[in-house]
Design a protein around this nucleic acid. Sequence first.
DNA 1: AATTCAACGAATGTCGACATTTTTTACACT
DNA 2: AGTGTAAAAAATGTCGACATTCGTTGAATT
Lengths: 240, 240
Amino acid sequence: MLTFYLNNSIFPCMSDFATFSSVTHSSSTLSAELTTTLRDAIITGEIAQGTKLSEAKMAKEFDVSRGPLREAIRRLEGMNLIIHIPQQSARVVTLSRDLILQLYDTREALESKAVALAAVKMTSREIDELHREIDAQSKQMRENSGAFVPVESDYRFHEMVIRGSKNKVIERALIHELYNLIKMFRYQNEFANTSSTNSLVEHRQIVYAIEQRDPVLAEVTMRRHIVHARERIERRMSLN
Amino acid sequence: MLTFYLNNSIFPCMSDFATFSSVTHSSSTLSAELTTTLRDAIITGEIAQGTKLSEAKMAKEFDVSRGPLREAIRRLEGMNLIIHIPQQSARVVTLSRDLILQLYDTREALESKAVALAAVKMTSREIDELHREIDAQSKQMRENSGAFVPVESDYRFHEMVIRGSKNKVIERALIHELYNLIKMFRYQNEFANTSSTNSLVEHRQIVYAIEQRDPVLAEVTMRRHIVHARERIERRMSLN
DNA sequence: AATTCAACGAATGTCGACATTTTTTACACT
DNA sequence: AGTGTAAAAAATGTCGACATTCGTTGAATT
């Protein structure tokens, strides 16, 4: 069975949903389970961009009533993964070139602020964890002689920094409302599949700045890190 | 009948809801109407912070079934106005000192980026509208010999700048997910009721920077504007 | 042939009832 | 009196059916 790794949770193809739901009962409510299942299906592209979501069909497919399904859709709306027009349709978001670039501009603003705060607020224990993560990145890249930082590790790194800001508002904006779209974009576009070896160097610089408790340096470094990613995307992305 | 002005929409006290719903049929769906009604009731404090929302009671009060009401609650969750714990409770958010300061940090990051983009992207027509708005502010303040920029005008100004960025992601993050909380905070705390006369000067500086098509100046100016607001709040806010 | 209108089908919105879980209350026991 | 347990009450979660709206098809008219 094909499985994808996202957010530390494994989820199988949608056709295997029956199996999945009988195996995993982590979430308390049906509606919450549906939310994560749909989220992952959208991120991976199993449900393609722009797809019109028919409540009746999906309810039948997942073998649930329309109530919980509608709630899941509302939540995904709040995560910017679904665009809903009342009385008409709910569609999976379409990642235009424009939207992606706007996404990275927003990420630049939020995450550079987050790391500035993190430089002040992170505990030394948390900084240690950052070290462990980039050491693992380094090791993995040497072993696989890969030019790319493994995506999951990259997400873990950035999310550790974000949480380190101790700012719940930024954390929610980034993790709940932005990163899903970024994961979706990266998952569905090989060329966006993380960063060159530069990324690892940049990660080290970020940790260094945090370690020095230097919010300005941390902010500038993170800003550059994200701008680099944005530039890479802007160059390589076809115009649509 | 007591009415409050928010987002260009008038809404009466909740006790008068029956009247309201028979008068205004602007929104297409019940669920959408409930969302705005509840949103405004939360912002004004008619539904107090921390209130536990009982679906049954509210459904009876508004004379609707629980379905649309639950959807409205999910949407308000997405706007950060309600915190929901599955199987337990949905509560109106509580604006702690900490949360407010985090909110302003986030706003600083997003809105300074927004204005930098606006300095590049705004049309001259849009800049004219900015002028009209701050001229109106100036006039109102002279006439009422007031030390404060009228809140509604202040929101209009900031929202014009945000839209001027032409960045839908930032726009949504700010207007849909942050400003409601800020409005809530300001509405329920006299002392936060906009800014000193400095604000008007700062608004002029921001427009000047945009006019000069100077994104760096615009960003710095906006950042200072918001930091000032934050500092004022930090000084005056009791510790809770 | 193109356009308009009407009827049909499909989809979303809304409702009331049932199921399950949580919280409260009351009672028994130490 | 305090604690623990069990029943009862209240609340959330879920379901299936009905209502309304939207989009489409097809026929009638110009």
